[in-house]
Simulated assay, not measured.
Amino acid sequence: MAESAAALADPLTLRCGAVLRCRIAKSAMSDSLGSGTGEATPEQAALYRRWAEGGLALSIVGEVQGDPHALENPGNLVLHADSDIDALREVTHGATGDGAHLWAQLGHAGALAHDGVGRRVGPSALALDGLTCDALTVQEIEALPARYAETARIAKAAGFTGVQVHAAHGFLLSQFLSPLFNRRGDLWGGSLENRMRLPLAVVDAVREAVGSGFPVGVKINATDGLAGGLTEGESLDAIRTVAGHLVLESWTIGFRAK
């Protein structure tokens, strides 16, 4: 036990070349500390600075959006051409002291968009008790990888040291992976290969946008935990497909049960 605990202090070199100063990371959470209009705040800067000073290697800022109509929470950061880069740099500067990392979790709330703030959309239309959304058009789907890529570019320019593509927890890319929520009959639905088409296109676009030496993570559910949803076997197949689709040296996968 003592040896295992001591190993937490060991540095970890990622295959892209980035170094985590130890093995302790804060997973993505929606901190709800944004301005309400998508901008970073002094409260966020203080929080992530404190975590970095506490000695962890990595913090991930949950639900950083590229679309102001795709918010999971009114306090989400929204990165776009008119974002206050100085305010973002206040957050990233304090959070990356002494070699700590700060990654932006690139998200789109999909059918779970906050009521009154976001537009609820998904791969297929839903009309369930407490869960409704419109189906994305093919044109809207095809535009998503470029939007994610632009968000990643802004994150890198603002001083984030990595990004994580959020394809879990029932948000948009997770919905595309799930046969329960993705009932499309075109190239974006049906087989697991087709359901993976959008998440893979997003990861490809993000990797191209940030370059090979910049960490890119992917969060995928172990299962949906729902009858008819993504199974553990499909999730493992998805990870194998991603691993074969990209150069392993340039990205990481997060695998977590809900």
Rank of each mutant, 00 (worst) to 15 (best):
A57G: 03
P74W: 12
G55C: 07
L77M: 10
L79W: 01
R89H: 13
V91N: 01
D86R: 14
G55Q: 03
G62Q: 06
M29T: 15
S83Y: 11
R89A: 03
V91I: 14
I85M: 15
D82I: 00
E53C: 10
A45I: 06
P68K: 02
N76S: 13
A40K: 04
G34S: 02
G66R: 10
D86Q: 14
P68E: 07
A28I: 01
W51I: 09
A87Y: 04
L77W: 08
P42W: 02
S27R: 11
P74L: 08
D82E: 13
A87K: 08
P68V: 00
S27I: 05
R49H: 02
P42F: 10
L47Y: 12
E90W: 09
A25F: 12
D84G: 05
H69P: 08
S59R: 00
G38Y: 09
L58P: 03
L71V: 04
A45Y: 00
R23Q: 14
K26C: 11
V91Q: 09
H69R: 13
G66P: 14
V64Q: 04
T92A: 08
Q65G: 04
P74N: 11
A81W: 06
D82H: 13
R49S: 10
W51E: 02
I85L: 15
D67L: 09
G75F: 05
G55E: 05
S32R: 15
P68I: 00
P74Y: 06
E90A: 14
G38T: 06
E63I: 00
S35T: 11
A28W: 09
S35I: 05
G36S: 07
I60P: 07
C22Y: 11
E63M: 13
V61G: 07
S35R: 10
G38D: 03
H80N: 13
G75P: 12
L47I: 03
G34I: 00
T92D: 02
G54H: 01
T92S: 14
G36I: 07
L77N: 13
C22A: 02
I85H: 09
T37C: 13
E43Q: 15
P68D: 05
D82P: 04
K26P: 00
D86Y: 05
S30Y: 06
S30G: 11
A87C: 10
E90H: 13
Y48P: 09
T41M: 05
A81K: 09
A81R: 15
L58W: 01
T37V: 10
G66V: 00
S59Q: 09
T41C: 05
E53F: 05
A45W: 03
A81N: 10
A70P: 07
A25S: 14
I60Q: 03
D82L: 13
R21M: 06
E39T: 09
L33A: 07
I85E: 06
G62E: 06
R89E: 07
L58Q: 01
T92Y: 12
P42H: 00
D67Q: 02
R50E: 12
C22V: 01
Y48A: 10
A25I: 12
S35A: 12
L77K: 12
G55S: 04
G54S: 10
E63W: 00
L58N: 01
A40F: 03
P74F: 03
P68A: 00
I24W: 10
A57Q: 07
G36P: 11
T37Y: 07
A70H: 07
D84P: 13
V78T: 15
G55W: 12
G66N: 01
Q65D: 01
E72A: 15
L58A: 04
S30C: 13
A40R: 11
A25L: 13
M29Q: 11
I24G: 07
A45D: 00
